[in-house]
Amino acid sequence: MLRYLALKAGRALFVVWAAFTLTFVLLFVLPADPVDLLFDPAELNTVTPEVREQVADGYGFDKPVLLQYLARLGHALTGDFGSSVQSGRSVTATILDVLPSTLVLAFGALVLALLIGFVIALAATSTRRAWVRNLAEALPSGAVSVPVFLSGILVLQIFSFQLGWFPAFGDQGARSLVLPMITLAVPVSGPIAQLLVRSFATEFRSGYVTTSWAKGATRGGIVVRDVFRNASLPALTIAGITFGNLIAGSVITETVFARQGIGRMTQAAINTLDIPLVQGIVVLVAASFAVINLVVDLIYPLLDPRLRATLATGSPLTA
């Protein structure tokens, strides 16, 4: 069990480290002169060599790459990614300002997407009517094929401008969260629902379901008592991966709904070539992604006793 824990935690740490290293190489090593990136291209020619040297010295660009890397890594470990080129504020503080709002949005959307997925899968499995099942199975591909910007505008039109139930933009209060959450959840609920529908159907055909029928159980009882837990396991894995997509997807949602968040900040940071900020964002997003997947890996053995057993006795026989 301890081994499993160490392995999974190690993997999470590796992901974060890899993200840091990769961004370091991309942002600080590959550009011919990273100092160029720190200035507005229009003003670049007016910058005096003295100023450039001063800046290079301040960022440590004159030292060997390896030393730069180690120094930055050391700072990053203490949560210091330097300060934003644009605002001069500390990168960590800037990100932490908006990260919660994005995480809440992404997490809410994930929960909503899972709910939608489970409702569709349960409806498709529990019903005896073929048309209900067909309808439920057609919904996921429908959900996937609607792009976020389109569904976002559509949702805005109906619930905000027409009905006036929810505010159209801004990030004040829980009510402002509803529309972006729905917009973000609908497309990712598609793959989750599809996976769940399939895994519910597979489990519903399995041997232990026959045993339950033979015990005298009813259809609803079988779905809830036997199929649900076995069929939910794959959803857990995909939920972890989806979370990453949701953070990436927040760029569009936050733009459409004019919310502050990581998505919009990334966009701005890239536009203004705010290198320290970009690196900070990449590493922090990778970290939250790694944490979520670590949690998923740790939940697995709680739900599946077979996995628990292999963890307790070591790897199963390979022959």
Partner: peptide
Amino acid sequence: ALVRGNYVGFVPQDPNTSLNPVK
């Protein structure tokens, strides 16, 4: 459902897949 289990018991073919693995 009232007949199954109550009046007629059923022993399935493959014991390895016929029990719910998580219960």
